[in-house]
Computed example of a mutant assay.
Amino acid sequence: MSSNNESIFPPATPTMSKKRADLAPDQVEAFRNFSSEVFKEGALDEKTKQLIAVASAHITQCPYCIKGHTKQAKQKGATNEEIMEAIWVAAEMRAGGSYAHAALAIDEIEKIDGL
């Protein structure tokens, strides 16, 4: 496994969080409130919400989100198998988007070829 020193991304630290908050305090407060509301237990339990977040983080390819939401999912009781299955759902959705959008290329090909 790689260490933080090997990463191309700076580590997520309290100092980094403070710098972001200092630069845009109102927006950070609004984002934190929004995040708290989104991840509260509701129609979906917190574990399920974190599994959705793990999958979404893989689709958006945010390394900070992947790490943070994987940790949260584990803390909410997700199993390793559930996390990996959520990641596979994300992989299918990302690949499925490429497959579905092939219709755009086919449409252009048909226009050019006069079909």
Rank of each mutant, 00 (worst) to 15 (best):
K76A: 13
K74N: 03
R94N: 09
T79Q: 12
A90K: 08
R94W: 01
T60Q: 13
M93L: 10
Q61S: 15
A53R: 05
V54P: 04
M84N: 14
E92H: 05
E85A: 12
T79K: 11
A57C: 11
V54F: 06
Q50P: 01
A90M: 13
I83L: 13
Q75P: 00
G96W: 00
R94K: 15
Q50A: 14
Q72E: 13
Q61D: 08
Q72V: 02
C65G: 11
V89R: 02
A91E: 04
T79F: 09
G77Y: 06
I66D: 06
E92G: 09
L51H: 03
K71I: 13
L51D: 03
A90W: 11
G96Q: 01
L51W: 01
C62A: 09
T79P: 04
S56D: 06
H58L: 08
T79M: 11
C65L: 13
K67S: 14
A86N: 06
H58G: 00
E85R: 07
Y64W: 14
Q50L: 04
T60I: 15
E92Y: 09
T70K: 05
Q50E: 15
A95G: 14
S56M: 12
S56K: 04
L51C: 05
A90F: 13
A90I: 15
A90T: 13
A86E: 04
I83Q: 07
V54W: 03
T79S: 15
S98D: 00
Q61N: 14
G68T: 10
G68D: 02
R94A: 10
M84I: 14
I59S: 03
A91R: 09
T70P: 06
A91T: 15
E82H: 06
A53M: 07
I66A: 13
C62M: 04
Q61H: 13
E92M: 11
T60P: 01
W88A: 10
A57P: 02
E85K: 07
A86I: 04
C65D: 09
N80F: 06
C62Y: 02
G68H: 05
A90E: 13
A95T: 15
Q50C: 10
I59Y: 00
G96K: 01
S56L: 13
C65R: 08
Y64E: 15
Y64L: 12
I59R: 00
R94T: 07
E92R: 05
A73K: 00
T70L: 08
K76H: 09
